[in-house]
Amino acid sequence: MLTLPLVIVLGLLAFGLVKWGKQKVSGVLVGILFGLALATTMVGPPILHAVTSASKTVVAAISSAVR
């Protein structure tokens, strides 16, 4: 199991690659590794739950506005 400090390091590396415009293949690979590392920690499930509930709220708001 990967640790939270590794997730933080990969996140900072991904941020640096995007900030300085070097997000080519290496940026994609770091993003994938960051996602996998985040998913294997205790931090991943609450983030996924928050994103899922936020997206459901947005979809519900758009659906009710269209009706």
Results as ranks from 00 to 15, higher is better:
residue 4 L to I: 10
residue 59 V to W: 14
residue 37 A to R: 00
residue 4 L to K: 03
residue 32 I to Y: 14
residue 40 T to W: 03
residue 38 L to P: 00
residue 2 L to S: 03
residue 56 K to S: 13
residue 47 I to D: 06
residue 21 G to H: 11
residue 34 F to S: 01
residue 37 A to L: 01
residue 54 A to R: 04
residue 46 P to C: 02
residue 15 F to H: 06
residue 60 A to E: 10
residue 24 K to T: 12
residue 67 R to I: 05
residue 48 L to V: 12
residue 63 S to Y: 04
residue 30 V to T: 06
residue 29 L to A: 11
residue 17 L to R: 14
residue 31 G to N: 06
residue 29 L to S: 08
residue 38 L to D: 01
residue 64 S to H: 04
residue 39 A to M: 07
residue 20 W to K: 15
residue 60 A to N: 07
residue 43 V to D: 04
residue 57 T to Y: 03
residue 13 L to W: 07
residue 42 M to T: 07
residue 20 W to P: 12
residue 12 L to S: 08
residue 42 M to F: 06
residue 33 L to H: 08
residue 37 A to C: 12
residue 2 L to E: 03
residue 66 V to Q: 01
residue 18 V to E: 09
residue 57 T to N: 06
residue 48 L to N: 11
residue 43 V to L: 13
residue 25 V to Y: 06
residue 24 K to S: 15
residue 37 A to M: 02
residue 8 I to E: 09
residue 62 I to A: 07
residue 15 F to P: 14
residue 12 L to E: 11
residue 38 L to T: 02
residue 14 A to D: 11
residue 28 V to F: 09
residue 33 L to V: 07
residue 2 L to V: 14
residue 36 L to W: 14
residue 18 V to W: 10
residue 49 H to A: 10
residue 47 I to R: 03
residue 43 V to S: 08
residue 26 S to W: 14
residue 14 A to Y: 02
residue 4 L to C: 11
residue 5 P to M: 06
residue 62 I to H: 06
residue 64 S to L: 00
residue 10 L to W: 07
residue 22 K to G: 15
residue 47 I to L: 15
residue 60 A to C: 10
residue 18 V to F: 14
residue 3 T to A: 01
residue 37 A to K: 00
residue 54 A to E: 05
residue 29 L to K: 04
residue 34 F to W: 05
residue 43 V to K: 02
residue 12 L to V: 13
residue 5 P to H: 05
residue 8 I to S: 04
residue 64 S to V: 01
residue 24 K to E: 12
residue 34 F to Q: 00
residue 33 L to A: 14
residue 36 L to I: 07
residue 37 A to P: 01
residue 37 A to H: 00
residue 7 V to L: 05
residue 26 S to K: 13
residue 57 T to S: 03
residue 18 V to D: 04
residue 32 I to P: 07
residue 61 A to N: 08
residue 58 V to C: 04
residue 67 R to A: 11
residue 24 K to F: 14
residue 22 K to V: 15
residue 56 K to F: 12
residue 40 T to I: 03
residue 45 P to D: 01
residue 55 S to I: 02
residue 33 L to D: 10
residue 63 S to W: 11
residue 33 L to F: 13
residue 62 I to F: 07
residue 55 S to A: 08
residue 63 S to I: 12
residue 19 K to A: 09
residue 32 I to Q: 05
residue 38 L to W: 00
residue 54 A to S: 11
residue 65 A to Y: 15
residue 34 F to R: 00
residue 35 G to P: 02
residue 5 P to S: 11
residue 20 W to F: 15
residue 45 P to H: 08
residue 52 T to C: 10
residue 67 R to V: 15
residue 14 A to S: 15
residue 40 T to L: 10
residue 39 A to P: 02
residue 50 A to Y: 04
residue 51 V to S: 12
residue 56 K to Q: 13
residue 33 L to W: 06
residue 10 L to Q: 05
residue 25 V to N: 11
residue 18 V to H: 07
residue 37 A to W: 00
residue 19 K to P: 03
residue 4 L to A: 01
residue 55 S to M: 08
residue 11 G to N: 09
residue 61 A to D: 01
residue 11 G to F: 15
residue 28 V to R: 02
residue 48 L to Y: 02
residue 27 G to L: 07
residue 35 G to T: 02
residue 7 V to F: 13
residue 41 T to D: 06
residue 43 V to I: 15
residue 16 G to P: 05
residue 5 P to N: 08
residue 27 G to F: 09
residue 56 K to D: 13
residue 51 V to C: 04
residue 22 K to P: 15
residue 59 V to G: 00
residue 40 T to H: 08
